[in-house]
């Protein structure tokens, strides 16, 4: 389990307009590039000062590559990060609030307690 790394992906993509578009258009390619180049980058530190141990599990990688927000919820990714990024990518393809409501309906298999989001 690397909930932290899932969140780091969602966080770093969401804050970068170019990456939001890149992830929308080429999810698999973006995830592969990000895991290779960005996953071990310490934010707010010089680029050379990298971590050495961060990688996705197979299921985490698959969920990100397939834009599978239901799986991300189940894996304990922070729901605010997932929602914010996915609205940025997909709200434009729908009428007002249609996407947000469908996003919630797709999660109806989940009842309380929800998956733990503590990192």
């Amino acid at each position: 389990m690397s909930k932290y790394l899932l969140n780091k992906f969602l966080y770093t993509v969401d804050r970068d307009p170019d990456l939001v578009e890149r992830y929308r258009q080429d999810a698999a390619g973006t995830v592969s590039w990000w895991e290779q180049e960005m996953a071990n980058q310490l934010l707010n530190c010089a680029v050379a000062e990298k971590s050495t141990w961060l990688e996705f599990t197979d299921e985490e990688r698959r969920a990100l590559r397939e834009h599978d927000h239901v799986a991300l919820f189940g894996l304990g990714a922070h729901p605010f990060l997932t929602l914010t990024l996915f609205i940025a990518m997909f709200e434009r393809d729908h009428g007002p609030l249609e996407y947000q409501k469908a996003y919630g309906r797709a999660l109806h298999q989940h009842s309380l307690p929800y998956p733990d989001i503590a990192t």
Partner: peptide
């Protein structure tokens, strides 16, 4: 408040 869960935007 629910954000990113099944009860959002009701």
């Amino acid at each position: 408040l629910e954000l990113g869960g099944p009860r959002q935007f009701g």
